[in-house]
């Protein structure tokens, strides 16, 4: 009897520790990024880091300006939003409100499959198909452009946006829609006059989470955007994103060099960025539930 009580005490303590482990890990991630990245800001002021136009981390003198990288990430993300958000929301509406049950299951499986394809595979397929097409269609010297990245990332964001929007649409009380239908509205009218309003916070949250995924996406974007660290002017030129910079350069840095620390500093910026996006999206989702 005593033994059982001790056992249960230990187990319940372990359960509690596991429960708060997530908090611990978020804190650990932040602390360790800071630990490695903070030293960098002693060498290079944050203003020059974020506002600097030149990223020449291994030339002499070193230049650590990540403005081109930030703009590269923003451009690709912006393009990806254009590609994915309208289409995904439309798709979510089709699946939850229009599609017959059987088709619904097939479509959902298809979207789950899209979510399951590893990013490196999409990057590879992008290299072998999308990039040559972009090159040919726009008569460019290279197809490794922001546009290619936007299309691919847009595709990768779709499953997130679709499934969360769909949840939001399904969560709209049936009575809202039935009320509109009873007043003689068509299904479409009920949808865009009533359902979309009720589901809006969830759809916004879904889009934000999709954007969060796009900003953090690494492999595909590194493989198909060309990685030129210049301030981008158009979608049809190579760009370099924050994530690709870390992934591509960390392997070549000397541990403890400014370059090494600067990549952690970029990591801090990415972490804070996704943190803000996720918290905001979660607030929207929460509001929706109330």
């Amino acid at each position: 009897m005593k033994l059982r009580q001790i056992k249960e005490f230990v187990i319940e303590k372990l359960i509690f520790l596991s429960g708060i482990a997530s908090i611990l890990f978020v804190v650990l991630i932040f602390v360790f990024l800071l630990k490695e990245g903070i030293a960098f800001f002693r060498e290079v002021p944050a203003k020059d880091f974020i506002g600097g136009k030149y990223w020449y981390p291994i030339s002499d003198p070193e230049r650590f300006g990540i403005l081109p990288l930030i703009l590269g990430s923003l451009l690709v993300t912006f393009g990806a939003i254009l590609v994915s958000v309208p289409v995904s929301i439309a798709c979510a509406f089709y699946i939850s409100e229009v599609a017959p049950v059987k088709l619904k299951d097939i479509l959902k499986t298809g979207i789950e499959m899209l979510a399951a394809i590893p990013s490196v595979v999409l990057g590879f397929i992008g290299m072998t198909t999308l990039v040559p097409w972009v090159k040919k269609i726009f008569h460019l010297p290279t197809g490794l452009t922001a546009l290619s990245g936007s299309i691919m990332l847009g595709l990768m964001a779709m499953p997130t946006i679709i499934s969360i929007s769909e949840d939001a649409i399904n969560a709209v009380p049936k009575s809202y829609k039935e009320g509109a239908l009873a007043l003689g509205a068509t299904r479409w009218q009920a949808m865009y006059r009533v359902v979309i309003h009720a589901a809006l916070p969830g759809i916004i949250a879904a889009s934000m989470l999709g954007i969060g995924r796009v900003i953090g996406e690494t492999m595909a974007v590194m493989m198909i955007t060309g990685n030129a660290a210049v301030i981008p002017q158009t979608f049809l030129q190579p760009v370099r994103t924050l994530t690709a910079t870390i992934a591509a350069e960390m392997g070549e840095t000397v541990h403890g060099s400014n370059h090494y620390y600067s990549l952690f500093a970029i990591g801090i910026i990415l972490f804070v960025l996704t943190f803000i996006i996720n918290i905001t999206a979660d607030m929207f989702l929460h509001r929706n539930k109330k």
Binding site: V26, L28, L33, E217, G267
Partner: peptide
């Protein structure tokens, strides 16, 4: 909130974290 954030952290940032820790 922590879980939501863990799910949203960029995969390459996990790489940095793993490297550092």
């Amino acid at each position: 909130l922590a879980i939501v954030n863990l799910a949203g952290v960029s995969s390459v940032v996990y790489g940095l974290f793993g490297l550092a820790l």
